[in-house]
Write a protein that binds this DNA or RNA. Structure first.
Length: 198
DNA sequence: GCATTAACTACCT
DNA sequence: AGGTAGTTAATGC
């Protein structure tokens, strides 16, 4: 989901900088803003009882986050954390609703975006339910690639560390490494100087 | 700091 | 028993 920066600003949006590892919002807080990334990347995550991390999503430039919570009266059930230094534009909930009310096309876009997220979340859950690590990794790669434009074979560079991949699909790094190599042998992906292309 | 490998353990069918 | 993921530790990039 992307809304023009000028439009967001004219409706009261504010640009804020976040440092790496800074929380943008936390679990159990009350959602109050629409967020859109101008520069940098963020992750949405949870921590389990043992303190180990599960990453729900990783988002970059021109992607929005937190929007789905604005339509509910529920608190966040995820944290949002800056992965890199970031510039993010935030728009108050009321202003966001005023904006989409006055621009019905944006309202439709919001629906489209939420639908797409729901679709891929469902696909992700199906893959995560599998005990096969290959399926989990390929599912994640399909998901990540769905945000990208071109669909060519190994055109998509995965800009995640092995650890981040592991945290996104609930595996250990070593398993991700082993399985990625296996998938390379089977020609599902390509690895060039430690980078994964899909 | 991140990626890889190896040797080991544990679990599951 | 065989296969596979997790654990630990050492090493390489």
């Amino acid at each position: 989901m992307k809304i023009e920066e000028d439009l967001l600003l004219s409706y009261g949006g504010e640009i804020k900088s976040y440092k790496q590892n800074e929380f943008i919002f936390r679990e159990d807080e009350k959602p109050a803003f629409y967020y859109q990334i101008i520069e940098g990347s963020i992750k949405e995550n949870n921590y389990n009882e043992l303190g180990s991390e599960f990453i729900q999503n990783i988002l970059g430039t021109d992607q929005s986050f937190g929007d789905s919570f604005l339509f509910l009266h529920k608190n966040y059930n995820i944290n949002a954390v800056a992965l890199t230094d970031c510039q993010i534009i935030k728009l108050k909930k009321d202003d966001f609703f005023r904006l989409i009310k006055e621009y019905p096309d944006l309202s439709v876009d919001t629906n489209k975006c939420l639908s797409q997220r729901l679709y891929f979340k469902t696909a992700m859950i199906q893959n995560l339910a599998s005990s096969l690590p290959e399926k989990r990794i390929l599912g994640l790669l399909d998901y990540l690639k769905s945000f990208h434009k071109d669909d060519d074979k190994f055109s998509f560079l995965v800009k995640l560390t092995r650890q981040q991949i592991a945290d996104l699909i609930g595996l250990r790094v070593e398993t991700v490494i082993r399985t990625a190599k296996k998938l390379e042998r089977e020609n599902f992906l390509k690895i060039d100087s430690r980078k994964i292309y899909y």
